[in-house]
Design a protein around this nucleic acid. Structure first.
Lengths: 236, 236
DNA sequence: TGCCACAGGATTGGATCCAATAACAAGACT
DNA sequence: AGTCTTGTTATTGGATCCAATCCTGTGGCA
């Protein structure tokens, strides 16, 4: 879990602040902590059985991953993204992830390919939204997993994490037969990966991300009025 | 300075940890703190007149910008990048910065254009390396400065900062008449910006970054053996 | 009624002290 | 000789306390 952020090559999160960061990260990605939620140091310290110091460290770690944002003397919260923010994140993904995939492509083993196939099979044989979110992420991350650059991988993961909540919100109101399109795209990507064809990989992956962006940003109701993204209460 | 990281919309770094982070950031970018340098909390606290707490916060902030890396129970240091690391960073730049420029393009004012022209004029009329590094950065950042997405700008700035040291190291041994090529590229970018032509902007900017990458990575002597990038002493 | 000043509470930022961990060196045992 | 063990020291991680800042609500005043 979160391999790109493991600062401890050998051990793990034997350090308190990293354990806390891990817990909060999971809660944010799972949707338990939604955008706009303020993360109070006292409350987190009490809930997680530690003092405020490791909590502060954890909030900084999460901030570096784009999962929280902090304001001096005012605290930290899960960022509220506007439609434009998400649009930009996706455009960044359209540029970056094809590179990640290309870098990974030549190093993918047969085990990786088998795993991709298995994941995609499961995606097509279930209909739970949260399960889909996990599997979809797993599909793409597996395809990137042989990328030799930790920096590039971390960046890719960060872009995924930052937009996770809005992907989930989108899924609950998405056209049910959108799944057909997603599966077709995944199959094309998988085939291109199997053929080790970087050009087709980039083509279909870019298309996949782009189409998702277009559909996602066609639903402005998923986003708040860009006013209160300031962190300051609206002036009513 | 460092507008993308200003967490305080109104104020500034009235907070100690941010002042410290700012100082260290400047020292790293100026080349005073070179890759591999360990940043001891005690020493920094004494030198900057604060306790270790804001120093720890500052190191986290810098880590989130890619300017330092920290290891549990072992401390923080300026990252040592391998040739492959820098290569990857540049490839990321080739993908991302054309997007940043395109997003900025339509919002650039005549003042921005005049400023770009002024910067490029000065680049062509001086030969100091450190001055060039500043002006070159200023040229590109100005061309991006109208980008409405803070996230995209921050990412772009981060990629620049992370590779700053190696750009400087490269400059000192670069072919003197390399300047001719850089200037030609800058002029083409500037012209495309003036014509508000996103396609040419992306073409020439991508080429500019790519050519720099190819030349830079043709000098493996700028990089350490990728062994001791681990942060752990070599096994002799 | 509307607005500004001010005080009280809540929350974060920083300092100091103590605990835990890791690098280092010296010594014992095979 | 080499390796494993064991103290020692340097350095980071965490807890507690205090200071500084911000938000809120209340009261005075035009």
């Amino acid at each position: 879990m979160s391999p790109a952020h493991a600062r401890d090559p050998r051990g793990s999160d034997s350090v308190r602040s990293q354990r806390i960061a891990g817990i909060l990260r999971d809660e944010i990605l799972a949707g338990d902590l939604t955008p706009g939620t303020w993360l109070r140091q006292d409350e987190l310290a009490a809930r997680l059985g530690a003092s405020r110091i490791p909590v502060r460290e954890a909030l900084r770690i999460l901030e570096s991953e784009g999962l929280t944002e902090s304001f001096p003397n005012r605290g930290a919260r899960v960022p509220v993204l506007s439609l434009e923010d998400v649009n930009t994140y996706y455009r960044m993904r359209e540029r970056l992830e094809p590179l990640t995939l290309t870098e990974s492509l030549s190093r993918l083993t047969d085990q990786h390919l088998a795993r991709l196939e298995r994941i995609q099979d499961e995606i097509e044989n279930q209909s739970d939204i949260n399960r889909f979110l996990l599997l979809d992420r797993d599909f793409h991350m597996t395809s990137y997993s042989a990328c030799p650059s930790g920096h590039l991988l971390a960046m890719t993961e960060r872009l995924w994490n930052s937009t996770q909540h809005y992907r989930r919100a989108f899924m609950v109101l998405a056209d049910p037969d959108r799944a057909t399109i997603v599966n077709a795209e995944h199959r094309l990507i998988l085939d291109a990966v199997r053929r080790r064809d970087p050009e087709d990989c980039e083509r279909y992956l870019t298309g996949h991300i782009r189409r998702t962006r277009v559909e996602l940003t066609a639903h402005p109701e998923l986003f708040v009025d860009s006013d209160d993204a300031s962190g300051r209460p609206a002036v009513s």
